[in-house]
Design a protein around this nucleic acid. Structure first.
Lengths: 288, 288
DNA sequence: TTGAAAGCGCTAACAG
DNA sequence: CTGTTAGCGCTTTCAA
């Protein structure tokens, strides 16, 4: 029992390939009877239409790509869950690509998307991503792209983010309300819009509550865990120890605990400001 | 600047399409010069070979599918990370499918894989999955399939698992060595090979150490968190409270804590026996 | 309502 | 080394 094709169905039913094709697509111009017969035979012979053939012809793939830095932290895992669920509902397939924070990989991956493999892209950019030529090129080629979580301001595409400004603003105000006197901000990376927005929210809240912004209270964490560890250790050193901390990333919160334990310090009041903890994945829009 | 095809390159260089095709594939039967020219023009015109066309011709997709129940718990997230990394290295693409523990979905998803979209499948079966007709059918069609983590004994395919028997055996012995007198096993589901193997390991260790196996000490947890909660609560009720627990799934360990807190009980000595905590993803083998 | 024919873009014999 | 030819399997005009 070799691979069954439309042609074979056609021969067995004394019909033309085009009729079979139409019947399978439930075309309005095929008689009930014929459809019936075709569907039956197809089921019997276990016919599965070739994906590449129809893709080549129709120029669609019913596939979207999700390009993210990593799936390690629970945020992206959740995101995948949500995305896949919606995609499956809509009959779409989901390709996963990890950039591991490498801009070059991001470029290479997006470049390949010009080949018809995907109909659309969900992108959460690299921390390294500074310009967006590669993104604009995809768009030029007519491939819709939506940025989520980590977006890049300069490009004119749909962006899905939590309101970074608002969340760090709220977090800061919350800590102040809890009588914190010195609030530090653990920030992720400087180039991302997310980071700057959060920084702004933090500043705004401080200012409104009559605190002065201290650049030394903002720690720019990097990819290197060891570095971050040192930075946090320095931050928590007694002389100017903060009594409140806003952590921008899950991992950093953990580091704070570690450092405190090691230094036998009381754990400061901490507020994590997470990516998308309450992400409601947007429904996809199939291409029109 | 419309989509560039091989034909266009051919015309511009006064060569045939086949020559271009060969040059792009770095065929041994094309002159240095020609290759050079072709590559240059291709780069200049930003040529990207059509995926469906070559897929249709060559009957490959350079794509593998990963079919898992959920990506929620960190295990599968890690798995995806590893799989994608290896795939990317080998120039493969990764499709993700979630079954949400539904056997019907699993079936439907595998069925579609007969259409040429994927070259291979990594499957971690549903808790519901009882028979393996759908799996065997895929294999018949020449699509390699590897089961991981949650495997199904009856099928003759490569399986990647931690040694379930050994790990629960070791865990049980460990608890006995810690002077535990009554050791409970929180088991996941009865039909999975993983569960039965773990149960065997547990029994073996008990027996070897002169303990008698008590069916009541094995709790078969279900999908329903609330149910599990009740079961664990009953288990931990004073009369025959275990002083050691082997938890088969991450989630269950958490439940135990919750129940103990609520009941103001001391937390029993607990040993989690996790899926693949130390999974070293196997390198893929591209099809020969 | 159905069929014939052409072609999506690429690759692989088979020649030369 | 390069060109010619013939499809991969399906969809879609255009005719009948």
């Amino acid at each position: 029992m070799e691979k069954v094709t439309i042609k074979q169905l056609a021969k067995k039913l004394n019909l033309s390939a085009s009729t079979i094709s139409r019947a399978l697509q439930d075309s309005h111009q095929i008689s009930r009877e014929t459809k019936q017969k075709v569907l039956e035979l197809a089921a019997e012979l276990n016919f599965v239409p070739n994906y590449h053939a129809s893709g080549l012809r129709k120029k669609v793939s019913r596939t979207i790509a999700v390009v993210i830095p990593e799936v390690a932290d629970s945020f992206f895992a959740q995101a995948i869950n949500g995305i896949e669920a919606v995609a499956q509902e809509q009959g779409f397939h989901v390709l996963i690509y990890l950039t591991h924070e490498s801009f070059l990989k991001e470029q290479a991956i997006l470049k390949e998307f010009q080949n018809g493999r995907v109909d659309g892209v969900l992108l959460s950019i690299t921390a390294e991503t500074a310009h967006s030529q590669h993104i604009r090129e995809l768009l030029t080629r007519g491939i819709p792209l939506v940025m989520f979580d980590r977006v890049c301001e300069e490009t004119a595409v749909t962006k899905i983010t939590t309101n970074d400004f608002a969340s760090s603003y709220a977090a800061t105000k919350h800590l102040i309300a809890c009588h914190c006197k010195r609030i530090a901000l653990l920030s992720a990376s400087n180039s991302l819009a997310m980071s700057t927005n959060r920084l702004q929210g933090y500043k705004k809240a401080l200012q409104e509550q009559g605190f002065s912004f201290q650049p030394a209270d903002v720690i720019a964490c990097s990819k290197d865990e060891a570095d971050n560890y040192s930075l946090i250790k320095a931050l928590l050193a007694p002389p100017r120890r903060p009594d409140g901390i806003i952590a921008t990333v899950e991992k950093q919160a953990t580091l704070v605990y570690q450092v405190c334990q090691e230094l036998h310090l009381p754990i400061p009041r901490e507020v994590p400001v997470d990516g998308f903890s309450n992400l409601q994945p947007e429904p996809f829009h199939s291409p029109p």
